[in-house]
Simulated assay, not measured.
Amino acid sequence: PLGTRSKLVHISAGPIESPKNELINLVFEFSRNIQIYTEYEGLHIDILHSHYWLSGLVGDLLSESWEIPHVITFHTLAKTKSRALPVGDEHTSRSASEYKLMCRSDKILVLTQKEVQDIDQLYGSFSNKIAVVPPGVDLEMFHQTDKDAARNQLNIPRQNNVVLFVGRIDPIKGLDVLVKALSMISSVEDTTLYIVGGNEESNEYYRSIKSLVVEMRLDDKVIFTGAIAHDNLAAYYSAADVFVLPSHYESLGFVVIEAMACGTPVVASRVGGIPSIVEHGSTGYLIPWRCPEAFATQIEVLLKNKDLHSFMSKEAIKKAYSLSWDASSKKAADLYGEVISGSINTQVI
């Protein structure tokens, strides 16, 4: 839920069904529509904070037009994605646009120290304008609840082992690794994998995962739920025995924090910002890339060892509760104040 002093505004630009690779053509229209809205409402903006590169391009235009500072958070960068998974559908101008935005923005807000390293190695030194603000989790929405109650709510048999994935059905998420890992689990007959995320038939990768499930003869062991509303995800996290994120790359992985807040141990790739959240052997396990055997081993360890599972569940909750939105939002607000103050002082000089 939004804070009492927050407002969500929908700004239109272009056709609703615009392909992803054509969204860059709507940047000027979108920024202009934002200007029209602010003028109509009589709003005075002190600072902009944009997320991802396309919104960053919009923020850059507005920052120049309004002569106010611009903070940007990239979340995932083109060069880190291509390094992790060379084949992709990123726009050809993305990495160049990201570099331009790093140069022109007043501050780059990142969520983990790993992002600082990635920017330094792949884009150049911007340490003078980078600030690390760890993320938070909505502890009112995501907290541990009774597993049997959650399973009853979702019509999941109580006696089954439940492995859960939440996220986009996208090659960067490494779902093929998870399906292969499931086939290697000795208790697979008593285990069900729930894949929560969009499942459009037009998605080529989704079709390939469905085919892999059939090939592995796991048709009755893998359930694709489709997209689930964010405020309904807590029931899935609570119903699960293990949460798995086998991504090739994640700048952070918010779903990991949400799962941990619900007391579900995590098995995840040792990539990107995930190691800053998952403590190997304490809140879950970190696995090398492209290694279904290792994923299968650690998933099975958690499914079979109830005492270990209970320990990791408690540690996961402790870790998640140290990442509150209150602490994160205060750090972000302090950063905004510093940037605005610095901008005013610069203009005075």
Rank of each mutant, 00 (worst) to 15 (best):
N25A: 00
L26H: 08
V27W: 00
V27S: 03
F28N: 08
F30T: 02
F30V: 00
S31M: 01
S31L: 00
Q35K: 09
Q35M: 09
I36T: 13
Y37E: 03
T38E: 12
E39Y: 10
Y40V: 11
H44I: 12
H49C: 10
H49K: 08
S50Q: 05
H51S: 12
Y52C: 08
L54E: 07
L57I: 06
G59E: 02
G59Y: 03
G59H: 07
L61Y: 06
L61W: 00
L61Q: 05
L62K: 06
L62M: 10
E64W: 00
E64I: 06
S65Y: 07
E67L: 10
E67W: 02
E67F: 08
H70I: 03
H70G: 00
V71W: 04
H75V: 04
T76A: 14
L77P: 00
L77I: 07
A78N: 09
K79Q: 13
T80E: 14
K81G: 09
S82T: 15
R83M: 10
R83D: 11
R83N: 12
L85D: 03
P86L: 02
E90K: 05
E90T: 05
H91F: 05
T92S: 11
S93H: 10
S95T: 15
A96C: 11
Y99L: 15
K100Y: 07
K100V: 03
